[in-house]
Design a protein around this nucleic acid. Structure first.
Lengths: 242, 242
DNA sequence: CGGAGTTTTGATTACGTTCAAATCATGTGG
DNA sequence: CCACATGATTTGAACGTAATCAAAACTCCG
């Protein structure tokens, strides 16, 4: 269950309701002035989720914007008959709920225990009007997201199962490096079914492909959630990096 | 070949270099003041393309931002071995080249004869800083685009061939209505191969699926590029509208 | 008309899915 | 601390959807 810490502290006299997350780590804060960071901080609230908790539901009014500070989250959409499409995974530093449309575009669930910082949308928007740098950074984030989605469209539209899994592993490694973590081993917090729903495949095909990579010596599977990339070049070739 | 009309007129004394396109039709101009519209107009240039012309190349420096005023454009990305993924189609009112990243994320080619308005990116960005409403509208556009891309990810990841083609036809009809045109017949300016590369299928499968819809009485094919939706409800069911 | 490109149709193949079951982790209670 | 239960992962066999290969029919311009 979600445990909201900030709201209680806000009721107390604390001027800074978000102690659990260091705001200076957030990607949006890059070039903000100290007073601007303080104002952003003042509208933040920290929330914890246990593994598997729902965070937001597709279609609900998007009253809050979140940034992930610890853990991993899956985004997904469901078809009427229950088929699921995982549209993305969030790691620390990523945003959730940024859109001008009034409703969340996808549901979100925690994969691991998760800590997030939450902003009331209306307050964040007011702050964005006052701090143009902030708005520009959010815009930059949105276009970065557009780029990644285009890559995913190419993957889903034209890549083979092996190419999809290779691209996926390479992508996880890249994101680890961006977060200043070692690229190896790749930490895979999501299930094979999550991966399958993300890559447009079945659990079985994902599993078989990973086994195949293992026997070809491209990777070594230390555990289901720890995969070491052994032959980076060959994996990159498979991923069809353009 | 691209025919640039505005630049020549700019050399002449004309204060408004973009005569071919009425700027008030552009989606971004909704709530701008008259003087703001004038300033936007002053940095615009009109360009014409013949059918099949390249407009921008993936990876090139994104020096210009375009809006389409007449015709249709396809966006695509290529894999190293030549496989193509069409990431979207543009119709009048749509933008091309909006991103903070320095380079175009996809190539663009005209499908029909096309008229576009072109902005120097640096000038548009300067104007965006001066006119916050403009920036907010561009941001809204970007988030709208994100929503559509998520829909496409669901389509490519989890829908059958028939569902994809049904969704595609429904989408074209919707966009016609948004442009205040009749929803029927659906005008299909792109080739079957374009559609296939957009839906992650082959030309043959697209063609067979359309034939199948025709024989089921869902549509009637007036010509390859004019399709009338006969049984809207059944087509919507197939499209798995959520 | 003529002819190139596009679309449609047909036959076969292949990749990934589906259905089924065994094995492996993970965490819980005795 | 181990036995057990539950869910995740892996492996196996058969199947089906869409791809591939091939060719005919149709469009649409010149």
């Amino acid at each position: 269950m979600a445990n909201v810490s900030g709201e209680m502290k806000a009721a107390a006299a604390s001027p800074s309701p978000c102690d659990d997350c260091d705001i200076r780590d957030l990607a949006i804060c890059g070039t903000l002035r100290l007073d601007e960071v303080r104002r952003l901080n003042s509208i933040m609230t920290s929330i914890n989720f246990a593994a598997g908790d729902p965070v937001v539901d597709e279609g609900e009014p998007a009253d809050f914007v979140y940034t992930l500070t610890a853990g991993a989250v899956r985004l997904y959409k469901l078809l009427a008959d229950g088929r699921r499409s995982v549209t993305g995974f969030l790691f620390p530093g990523d945003f959730l709920g940024v859109s001008i449309r009034g409703n969340y575009g996808a549901s979100a669930e925690s994969i691991t225990p998760v800590t997030m910082c939450r902003f009331q949308r209306t307050e964040l928007e007011r702050l964005m009007e006052e701090i143009p740098t902030l708005e520009r950074r959010m815009f930059a984030r949105a276009t970065e997201e557009l780029y990644l989605m285009q890559e995913q469209i190419v993957l889903l539209g034209r890549k083979s199962a092996a190419e999809r899994v290779a691209s996926f592993l390479r992508g996880l490694a890249e994101r680890q490096e961006k977060r200043h973590l070692p690229a190896n081993p790749v930490i895979v917090p999501m299930t094979r079914t999550d991966i399958a729903d993300y890559l447009g495949l079945t659990t079985e095909t994902v599993s078989r492909t990973i086994t195949q990579f293992k026997s070809k010596g491209l990777i070594s599977v230390e555990s289901a959630s720890r995969i070491r990339i052994v032959d980076n070049d060959q994996l990159d070739d498979l991923a069809e990096a353009v």
